[in-house]
């Protein structure tokens, strides 16, 4: 009795909860089939058993009608156990691959949480840091504090990108806009990240006490001066004004960074090397941004892209192949002179 009760229950259990997974389905379906076969062999002993079995079988048929689709599923898994195994393996593999991808995406998303402490600032703090970036503090004996924060620097870099775009537009820079945008983003981020890494490397060599994060924050806030100067001088085209601002505002923000670095470095040679490099890079970058995207780019591009006819461009390149020693320097020189000439004329 107990054995005969299992098939019906087994098949019902096996098909009922689909959530149970493959294991249960296979067992349930399998037992139902096997038990029915066994029943034929062992049943002859008792007539009553036969009658009850018959009833149960009929019940099962009704059940089967009721849940035809599910029964089929169970039968499929039971009869073709091998196929079930295979599909399970495939499903397993799919699951693993999906899990790997999901975990990768999740780890990428979790990186945001890693960065979150660096963005933990208040508006008042940002304001005061922006102001402080223009005020050099003459305190050399004790290492000055640098706030390791990235919100301000990142926003300043984006602002600088916007200002550069604005400058290119107002100067009627005639190049393709895609290049403008890419150049602006590339220049600003390249300067920020590149110079920070370079100075960090130098600081490591000179044994200065500064971390990469602090370097990024320091240089990022140092760009505030650049933003102000460029915003004003892109709109008011006066060279004297630009040089004044360059020395005053750019100089102040550079001095501030230099003062911080000096206070964190020991030894005059190291100080000179580190601060000299930083000051030169920072001041020259401002100069470059002003002139490169003010008029000069326009001039150079006019020179280079003016005769924009492909066959005409080929001709001067073919000639140096014949007389490389004479023509090539001459051509290069010619282009350079033309560019400089246009530059000088535009100013």
């Amino acid at each position: 009795m107990a054995t005969t009760a299992t098939p019906a229950g087994g098949s019902r259990n096996g098909t009922g909860p689909e959530w149970g997974g493959f294991e249960e389905n296979i067992q349930g379906g399998g037992s139902a089939v096997i038990d029915m076969e066994n029943m034929d062999d062992t049943s002859g002993s008792s007539f009553e058993d036969m009658g009850e079995l018959h009833q149960r079988l009929r019940e099962e048929e009704v059940d089967a009608d009721a849940a035809a689709a599910e029964e089929e599923d169970g039968e499929f898994l039971g009869m073709k156990g091998f196929k079930g195994q295979l599909s399970r393996q495939v499903a397993d593999q799919m699951w693993q691959a999906g899990k790997r991808q999901a975990s990768r995406a999740f780890s990428l998303y979790a990186n945001i949480d890693i960065l979150r402490p660096y963005f933990d600032v208040e508006p008042a703090q940002v304001r005061s840091r922006l102001l402080e970036s223009m005020i050099p503090i003459k305190m050399v004996n004790f290492p000055q504090k640098i706030a390791g924060e990235l919100y301000g620097p990142l926003m300043l870099v984006f602002t600088l990108v916007a200002i550069l775009l604005h400058g290119m537009k107002t100067s009627d820079t005639i190049i393709r806009e895609g290049t403008l945008m890419g150049t602006a983003i590339g220049t600003c981020f390249g300067y920020w990240l590149g110079v920070s890494s370079f100075i960090y490397f130098l600081a490591y060599l000179c044994n200065a006490q500064i971390t990469m994060l602090q370097m990024l924050a320091l240089l990022g806030y140092g760009l505030f001066g650049h933003c102000i100067v460029l915003l004003i001088t892109y709109n008011i085209h006066l060279h004297a004004l630009f040089y004044l601002f360059w020395l005053l505002v750019g100089g102040l923000s550079t001095l501030r960074m230099v003062a911080v670095l000096v206070s964190r470095t020991v030894g005059p040679t190291q100080r000179l090397l580190l601060c000299g490099t930083l000051a030169a890079l920072h001041m020259l970058f401002l100069l470059y941004l002003h002139f490169a995207y003010h008029k000069v780019v326009e001039g150079i591009l006019d020179t280079l892209e003016g005769p924009n006819i492909p066959p005409m461009q080929r001709v001067p390149r073919d000639i140096p192949a014949i007389l490389p020693a004479v023509r090539l320097p001459a051509t290069v020189l010619n282009t350079t002179v033309k560019a400089v000439e246009v530059t000088l004329r535009s100013h």
Binding site: F158, K169, D172, T173, I174, I175, R176, E177, G178, L180, M181, E305, N308
Partner: peptide
């Protein structure tokens, strides 16, 4: 093409890149 006008792809990229940032 070289008159400083924004191209289709550029506007598209600015909007989505900016929004993601």
């Amino acid at each position: 093409e070289n008159d400083g006008g924004p191209q289709f792809a550029e506007v598209f990229v600015i909007i989505w890149f900016g929004a993601v940032t």
